[in-house]
């Protein structure tokens, strides 16, 4: 078989989406997105290391509506990746492979990720008395 013809990763488009496959690809997507969050964290810390002016500029960018939208996306991605990551660690221990548990933990991941995201933002806004 020629090297170029070797079968590689599955074509996601040809399968009917199911909770298992959708959560799996979302885990990857949030992981890639969180890499940008890591770069953003470095930018934020570096701006503070440069001094008050550059920190103020970074804060203004992060506080804009677009900045907040991105940060909200980062928050959700982090909690989703974290919750589904715990699900992955369960599989590594050999737990939760049957379809019933698989779907149950999948739903639990979705609910927890949304819940923790909203909770964090409610806590942050009430911390500055804007809620």
């Amino acid at each position: 078989m020629a090297e170029d013809d070797r079968p590689l990763s599955p074509h996601l488009q040809v399968y009917r989406p199911q909770i298992t496959s959708v959560l799996s690809i979302t885990h990857r997507a949030t992981g890639v997105f969180l890499s940008l969050a890591a770069v953003m964290l470095t930018y934020w810390l570096a701006s503070a290391a440069y001094g008050p002016d550059s920190f103020a500029r970074a804060q203004a960018a992060l506080e804009s509506w677009f900045g907040r939208l991105i940060l909200f996306g980062f928050t959700f991605s982090l909690f989703f990746h974290m919750c589904n990551g715990i699900r992955h660690l369960g599989w590594d221990l050999g737990w939760g492979f049957d379809l019933v548990k698989l779907r149950m933990t999948g739903v639990l991941v979705i609910i927890s990720a949304f819940g923790l995201t909203v909770l964090s933002w409610v806590m942050a806004y009430s911390h500055v008395g804007k809620l």
Partner: peptide, 17 residues
């Protein structure tokens, strides 16, 4: 980290430093 960010909301440069 998330918990720290929540409690840092609204902090100025000096507080962050």
């Amino acid at each position: 980290f998330i918990f720290s960010l929540i409690s840092l909301t609204g902090s100025d440069y000096v507080a962050f430093q």
